[in-house]
């Protein structure tokens, strides 16, 4: 009896694991990283240009950073299709705003609008981390960071994406001066006052380092610099003051002109 009590396992035994439900997964992760740092009278928003899925590089140039108007730049990271479509919708809303009010939407209003747009899809979210940078109504540089469902806050800096865990601690140390002690008798550190040249170096270092240690980061770097109205751009346009390998281009005004100025700084990153 005992001999035949156990029929061949594979035919009759109930599967020990529950049946795998096969369902269409509408999301993907396309890697890459973004970061933004606010200065006193400028804001810097950057992202790499690699787009990948798993171990495959889909393209070495896909943008993640988008100029919205003369005072705002938005970086998106996560599921690329959601990112591009979200930016498209944001731009659409901004155009209707300009039709209605004959002026571009202000930075903090854009930030609030992005929150409502993200939360509007709370139950089928945009799988995207957003960082908004630009110039506030009072002329100060600002950075707003969001989670995929719309929680947001204004910060001095923020990194997001595949290499967030590599970049953010570095930024905490260099921008927020965490774990640094001012020399005895010298002034207290105040975040958000670094000169543009220092900030640019930090951005470049963040991405070259992330490229070394993270497979999803690399190929190219795009850094957008938004400057307060009337601020001199000499520190950016003087080649001698700029790190080698950086190429600067001024993006012409989109609105009335003679307001904030936006520059695009490019650099190549390692492709391996």
């Amino acid at each position: 009896m005992a001999l035949y009590s156990q029929p061949p396992m594979s035919y009759t035994q109930e599967p020990t694991t529950a049946p795998v439900e096969h369902r269409f997964n509408p999301y993907s992760d396309n890697g890459g990283s973004i970061l933004a740092i606010a200065g006193k009278d400028f804001s810097v928003i950057a992202g790499d240009t690699r787009q990948s899925e798993g171990y495959s590089i889909q393209t070495r140039y896909a943008r993640k950073v988008w100029q919205l108007n003369d005072k705002a730049v938005l970086a998106t990271n996560g599921f690329a299709a959601d990112g591009t479509n979200f930016v498209k919708r944001v731009k659409q809303r901004l155009e209707w705003y300009e039709h209605a009010h004959h002026k571009p939407m202000g930075l903090k209003s854009i930030a609030r609008m992005i929150q409502t747009m993200l939360y509007g899809k709370r139950f089928f979210p945009y799988y995207v981390y957003n960082i908004l940078g630009g110039i506030e109504e009072d002329g100060t540089g600002a950075v707003y960071s969001f989670d995929p469902v719309g929680s947001y806050e204004r910060e001095a800096c923020r990194g997001a994406g595949a290499a967030q865990s590599l970049i953010q601690p570095f930024l905490d140390n260099q921008i927020y001066f965490k774990n640094q002690q001012p020399e005895a008798g010298s002034e207290k550190f105040v975040p958000g006052n670094l000169p543009l040249s220092t900030v640019l170096s930090l951005v470049v270092d963040s991405f070259t380092s992330a490229t070394e240690r993270h497979i999803e980061v690399g190929d190219g770097l795009e850094i957008y610099v938004v400057m307060q109205k009337g601020r001199s751009a000499d520190d950016l346009l003087d080649e001698k003051k700029l790190a080698p390998g950086l190429k600067v281009e001024e993006l012409g005004a989109l609105g009335e002109g003679e307001g904030e100025r936006t520059f695009l700084v490019r650099q190549s990153l390692k492709r391996d």
Binding site: P26, Y27, S28, N30, Q51, E53, S56, Q58, T59, R60, Y61, A62, F79, A80, A81, T84, N85
Partner: peptide, 20 residues
């Protein structure tokens, strides 16, 4: 998925691993 990209060389599916 609505994922989009452009490049001078492209391949879908296994081609992305073997031919690209």
């Amino acid at each position: 998925l609505g994922t989009t990209y452009t490049a001078p060389t492209l391949a879908t599916g296994f081609g992305a691993h073997l031919a690209q």
